[in-house]
C-alpha cells in the first residue's frame, strides 16, 4: 500500500434493489489510484463503470466496503460533508448536459469557486485562465447552448479542474463526440493531468482512447477483470 494513493477502495460492493429484485452492480472492487495517474476504466455496458464512478465521487453510497479519499474513510460522512468534499476535492465530467444553461461559459466554470466563496474577481480570473488553457476562452461570455458538443465538454473539463481537486472523475465524456473531437478532448485532459498534477479516472467504451492513458482497469460483471499499466 503506497502512501501516495489519492483514492483507495476496499471490497467495494453495490447492490441495487428495485422491489424484490436485487441487481449486484459491483461485487467487491479493490482499487488504488495513485497521485497524478491518468486512468481509464473500460468494460461492457452494465459492467458497473458508472456505478464505480458515482461511488468514488460520493454521489451514492456503497452497499458494503469502504472508500478512502486522501486516506480518510468516506462512509462516515454526512450528505452535506460529502457535498463539501465534492466541492473541494473531486471534479466531475458527465456524458452530456454538464453545463447550467442559465450561466455563461465563464460563470459555469467559476460556479464551483463561487460555491466555495471565492471573491468574484479572483474566481473569474481563474476561470478565464483555465478556459484559455482548454482553448475555449473565446466563448467565455456565451451561453452553453451556443457551443458545440466538444466545446461544451471542454468547458465541463475546465469546471472540473478549476478548483484544483484531488481527482477528476469523468463518465464517458466522449460518448457523444466524433472520433477526432474525442481524441482532442482526451489530449486536453491529459495536459491538465500533467500541468495541474491532477489524478484522472474516466470511464469509456472507446478502445481507441485506451492507448493514451497510463493505466486501464477492465471491469466485467462488477469485478476487476484486468488492471494493466499501459505506460
Amino acid at each position: 500500500m503506497s502512501s501516495s494513493a489519492v483514492m483507495r477502495t476496499e471490497k467495494l460492493q453495490k447492490v441495487y434493489r428495485t422491489g424484490a429484485t436485487e441487481t449486484p452492480a459491483l461485487r467487491g472492487v479493490d482499487l488504488e489510484l495513485e497521485e497524478r495517474e491518468f486512468t481509464a476504466t473500460a468494460g461492457p455496458s452494465g459492467s458497473g463503470k458508472s456505478t464505480l464512478l458515482h461511488l468514488l465521487g460520493g454521489l451514492d453510497r456503497p452497499t458494503d466496503g469502504e472508500i478512502y479519499l486522501d486516506g480518510r474513510a468516506m462512509s462516515g460522512l454526512s450528505k452535506d460533508e460529502l457535498a463539501r468534499l465534492r466541492l473541494t476535492r473531486i471534479g466531475f465530467v458527465f456524458q452530456a448536459y454538464n453545463l447550467i444553461p442559465v450561466l455563461t461559459v465563464v460563470e459555469n466554470t467559476a460556479f464551483v469557486l463561487e460555491l466555495q466563496g471565492i471573491p468574484y474577481r479572483e474566481r473569474i480570473r481563474r476561470a478565464r485562465a483555465i478556459l484559455a488553457e482548454l482553448r475555449v476562452d473565446k466563448y467565455a461570455d456565451q451561453f452553453p447552448n451556443r457551443l458545440s458538443g466538444g466545446e461544451q465538454q471542454r468547458v465541463a473539463v475546465a469546471r472540473a479542474v478549476v478548483s484544483d481537486p484531488a481527482i477528476v472523475l469523468a463518465d464517458e465524456p466522449t460518448a457523444n463526440l466524433d472520433t477526432k473531437t474525442s481524441l482532442d478532448l482526451i489530449d486536453l485532459m491529459r495536459r491538465m493531468n500533467e500541468e495541474h498534477e491532477t489524478t484522472f479516472l474516466f470511464a469509456t467504451h472507446d478502445t481507441r482512447l485506451l492507448d493514451r492513458v497510463d493505466r486501464v482497469i477492465h471491469l466485467e460483471d462488477g469485478r476487476i477483470a484486468r488492471d494493466e499499466r499501459v505506460r
Binding site: A83, R84, R86, L87, F94, Y97, I100, V112, R159
Partner: peptide, 16 residues
C-alpha cells in the same frame, strides 16, 4: 431534475 443533479454533483449543497 438533471440540471440539479449536476449542480449537486459539483458540490452545491442541497440547502443552497
Amino acid at each position: 431534475t438533471r440540471e440539479f443533479g449536476v449542480m449537486t454533483a459539483v458540490g452545491m449543497s442541497r440547502k443552497t
